[in-house]
Design a protein around this nucleic acid. Structure first.
Lengths: 360, 360
DNA sequence: AACGTTCATATGATCGTTCATATGGCGGTC
DNA sequence: GACCGCCATATGAACGATCATATGAACGTT
């Protein structure tokens, strides 16, 4: 506590740091300058010990295995770190084999008082983690809706997958498509069902056919290829695919190429997640980009509100994804030889914000 | 300290946790059982305050912008978390705009005593960070050699890029290639120069031409495409490309396709980093996979040795990458119609360890 | 001028550990 | 039997901050 160089007591220094408004301007200036000169920063351990707050947020790394998350982990982490740090918090990361493993790490961190709260990632059906955390009295915010139950007692932020796939349908319909298929995953995955619902809803709204245009399998390139091939060989084949993931979409593109056609010319494809691959493969894959940075900001803000105790009722936030248009959806040329309708200003903006450095 | 339930003093509990050998078996058992029953874990803040050690390691997230690092950040983080945790440490991550920003975060974390040591990533020429940390007396280990100077005073772990590109040349030569080009980045990048050196060295050793077979530009798909096209149009074109990155390699594949050829048939390509894209694009891109998990283990182990004060002389560790063979290097068919030489057992092993879930 | 109120700053205690050191018991040696 | 040394355990202090509370100064009111 050499900061008594300012000629005041410890407590005054503490106030200067934590409640500057309490000090008279002159005193504050003196203390601040002493702090500057000595390069003082409060010792985190001592502070945590006394206040019982570590100013650290814990977050499990999304499992690498997640095909769909290519690039999402990276973006989410960067954004979380930035949001946390600009709010005076740090991010502690850990990886876990499965939910049980993750819970045991939660337990460890909580018992050691190494953390103030968690950001839960990768929520899914029959997810034991929220209940465990709630029962434990731990504070957290989830990235992902609680898929299993309606009135969850915790706050969450999620991306509106249905809105995304609906937008994809709108986009394709505007380009002239009438038979738009959906390549999804097996029923029971919250994310998958959500994205499917958007396709179904929007197709209904636009009075487009859905019969015989839905195919589901495990996520993956191989699945996408097989499913798309089956649909393309059917009596009334689709002219476009909206896909639950970029992996599925890439599979669909392969199936189209397998028939000697070009994705975006003969048949259009839209993926989901805008993974790095989407901008690299040829032709470029139109895809729905999750607003990960906004999600991270909201997650951190909400968690801090929860930590501060202000948050009385759980927050529920649904953010819209954004369609990144590339060649695979066929915007650049009309499928039937007629000149394409001019893109709307909004579309142009979207094209312009396509990730830099990519090769269309 | 409800753990006095065991009928002993605080200090004995402390000893049971930190120096069990000091206790008589009977006492230890009593304390341990009390600890179990109460689910006690030492409060991290109190412990840190007293011992001046936080058991937290800091690590900057690799910048997303890094094209070449697709998938590397993800793997590195998971591995670092696992290694740290199994050694009783936690990983604190942060992102930074540039080196200055990073240094100011170091400064903050050190001043607050929020961290024991750092893992430095993404070392490069004229890197102010190691010197700053050394001058500050901070403990750290770098992932990446100190490219600017010889006898660095700090420990580091790195991947032997030269060895990787040399292996790629060996592999291609074994498949019959005599004119193997290298697509590199501008001189001055440590990683880039290292990888180039391996190609040059191995080509020399095998008495292969290098004249007119080296092309350099900024990293990226577009660059790779342009450079490869130029070389292919030259008087004595190469029959294979070793590339400084997967991005360059993908560019080279495009240039090959631009001429109506198929990568792996007409001309072979090998990339570097084995990014997720490498296994997804068609044809699959042979690439050099960095042993990130081993790197992470070594980084953590070395850092812990440094933290414990045991490490007297700086450790320097160079780990070899591994060639993951896919279609683009043309192993499966001989380019001139003759049957391909049978793959060596080592090669088969490498093929077998190709990432699961990929579509060849 | 005495009063109560508010604001600015100071004091002692405390958070939960581990450190340094003290104490007591036990066995072996002279 | 007294002494020494060693081992297991206990005691008080300290780590560096904030909390709760006390003190004193400044102010406006009657």
């Amino acid at each position: 506590m050499v900061a008594d160089r300012a000629g005041v007591s410890r407590q005054t220094v503490s106030n200067a740091v934590n409640a500057p408004h309490r000090l008279r301007p002159a005193t504050l200036a003196a203390v601040t300058s002493a702090i500057e000169q000595l390069g003082y920063r409060p010792n985190q351990a001592a502070r945590s010990l006394r206040t019982r707050a570590t100013r650290v947020i814990g977050c499990r790394l999304l499992p690498s295995a997640h095909n769909g998350t290519g690039g999402v982990l990276d973006r989410l982490l960067h954004a979380l770190c930035d949001s946390a740090r600009s709010n005076g918090y740090d991010l502690l990361t850990f990886s876990a084999e499965d939910d049980d493993d993750e819970i045991s790490i939660y337990d460890d961190l909580l018992r050691r008082h190494a953390i103030d709260g968690f950001i839960l990632t990768n929520t899914h059906h029959v997810d034991a983690r929220p209940d465990w955390l709630l029962a434990r009295g731990a504070l957290f915010v989830a990235f992902g809706r609680p898929w299993s139950r309606r009135g969850a007692k915790h706050s969450w932020v999620d991306v509106d997958g249905a809105r995304g796939t609906a937008e994809a349908v709108t986009h394709l319909a505007r380009l002239g498509h009438r038979r738009i298929a959906f390549l999804g995953v097996h029923e029971g995955s919250g994310v998958g069902d959500d994205r499917l619902a958007g396709w179904e809803r929007e197709a209904g709204r636009l009075r487009l056919a859905t019969n015989g245009l839905l195919a589901r399998a495990e996520d993956g390139i191989a699945s996408g290829r097989t499913l798309a091939a089956q649909l393309l060989e059917s009596a009334r084949p689709p002219t476009a695919f909206v896909c639950v993931s970029d992996a599925m979409a890439i599979g669909a593109m392969r199936a189209i190429e397998d028939r000697g056609w070009r994705p975006g010319h003969a048949v259009s494809v839209v993926g989901f997640d805008d993974s790095p691959v989407a901008s690299v493969i040829r032709p470029g894959l139109s895809s729905l980009r999750q607003p990960i940075e906004a999600v991270a900001n909201q997650l951190v803000e909400t968690l801090l509100a929860v930590l501060s105790g202000e948050q009385v009722r759980p927050a529920r936030l649904l953010l819209p994804p954004r369609l990144v248009v590339r060649v695979s959806s066929g915007e650049r040329e009309d499928r039937r030889g007629a000149p394409a309708a001019p893109a709307s200003p909004r579309m142009q903006a979207e094209v312009a914000t396509t990730r830099k450095g990519e090769v269309p």
